[in-house]
């Protein structure tokens, strides 16, 4: 024992911890290498093919367009890292946006039963976020307590929440006569020359990275996705962490929905249909494993931009939307296939 202690006093312990940072960075960089190279290759190709592609204006446009999906994709990454999935994001997106919109002064709808009272803009937005968080909480609660597959639970809430949205609006869009300036800024404004959706996206990404890398909550998320039973036996509060992950997802879906309502000047009960596909595609194309425990927010950012750049490039090239669906589908299949191939190579 003495011998061992003497041994430990020297440099070896320091030697072990010293390269940790470097290896850590390499490991994280390694995860994102493939999507990053793919994205760069994509940008170069499109620049060569189409002269209109390579411009600051177009890049800002892409950054703004992907923000709506991107904000949700950050939440989805966290959910998928726990080994779960959330199919209800599109419905939550719609419900939160119609609730927030109906509470905003100046909102108008042909629906017979719309809320009669209004709130100041910040509180109306907050109410929308709370609605989203509540849907997420319910998802998380059922998934954590019942152990029913997240796929099934959120498939059910997807239908349920969409139904609530139609009931609440009577199927009519909510518009604004006129739109309060603060709410107009929320989705259409600019900060330092950047559109507000992009600013919100950047903030959500920063917070997401901080949560996943620097907090015990984030560590627990990776642990649960990596091995739920081992996490439970290590004293991780599995149920509580899952509920928090889905609640966060719901709130972020709501944020996206409210931003889009402001951006287009209307809250549609049909908003966000099939958005779950784009959000999950962004996460998976970035390289986050659907089995949980492996992936990162930054990978998802790359994934979302890959989708955004492709769709932008195809638009500029004048490719019809129908083909774009085909391309998106092929890309998703390739990403999942590549992930499972990598896993086979690593014998996981």
């Amino acid at each position: 024992m003495n011998q061992r202690e003497n041994h430990a006093k020297g440099g070896p312990a320091d030697r072990l911890s010293a390269p940790a940072g470097a290896f850590h960075l390499m490991g994280r960089f390694g995860d994102q290498l493939v999507p990053a190279i793919f994205l760069i290759a994509l940008v170069i190709t499109l620049s060569l093919v189409s002269p209109n592609f390579l411009s600051v204006g177009n890049f800002l446009d892409i950054a703004r367009v992907v923000s709506i999906i991107g904000i949700m994709a950050v939440g989805m990454t966290i959910v998928i890292l726990t080994g779960g999935i959330d199919l209800s994001v599109g419905s939550t997106f719609a419900l939160a946006s119609v609730v927030a919109a109906s509470l905003i002064p100046g909102s108008f709808s042909d629906a017979p039963r719309i809320l009669a009272f209004v709130l100041p803009v910040p509180f109306a937005i907050l109410a929308g976020l709370l609605v989203g968080a509540a849907v997420g909480f319910i998802n998380g609660f059922i998934i954590a307590k019942s152990r029913v597959e997240p796929f099934i639970v959120t498939l059910a809430t997807m239908a349920f929440v969409r139904g609530l949205t139609y009931l609440f609006t009577g199927g009519f869009p909510t518009i604004f006569r006129p739109m309060p300036p603060l709410f107009e800024w929320f989705g259409q404004g600019y900060v330092l020359g950047l559109p507000t959706p992009t600013i919100f996206f950047a903030l959500v990404v920063l917070i997401g990275v901080w949560i996943t890398r620097r907090t015990t909550f984030g560590r627990s998320i990776y642990a649960i996705g990596g091995n739920e039973e081992a996490s439970r036996l290590s004293g991780i509060k599995v149920q509580s962490i899952k509920i928090r992950a889905y609640t966060l997802m719901g709130a972020l879906a709501a944020l996206s929905g409210i931003i889009l309502a402001s951006r287009v000047g209307a809250a549609q009960p049909t908003a966000g249909l099939t958005y779950e596909l784009d959000v999950i595609a962004g996460v998976v194309i970035g390289g986050t494993s659907l089995l949980g425990g492996r992936g990162s927010i930054m990978s998802t950012v790359l994934g979302v931009f890959i989708l955004g750049v492709i769709s932008n490039g195809l638009n500029i090239a004048g490719v019809p939307t129908y083909y774009q669906y085909v391309v998106k589908g092929l890309l998703l299949i390739s990403a999942v296939g590549f992930d499972s191939y990598l896993r086979k190579m690593q014998r996981i």
Binding site: T216, R219, A223, G226, N227, E229, A230, I236
Partner: peptide
């Protein structure tokens, strides 16, 4: 492998898992 370790996590992350506090 099934109950003791979170295999995709690192040595560092596994050692501290039961006492994140």
């Amino acid at each position: 492998k099934l109950q003791g370790l979170v295999l995709p996590m690192t040595v560092r992350e596994n050692i501290t898992l039961a006492k994140l506090g």
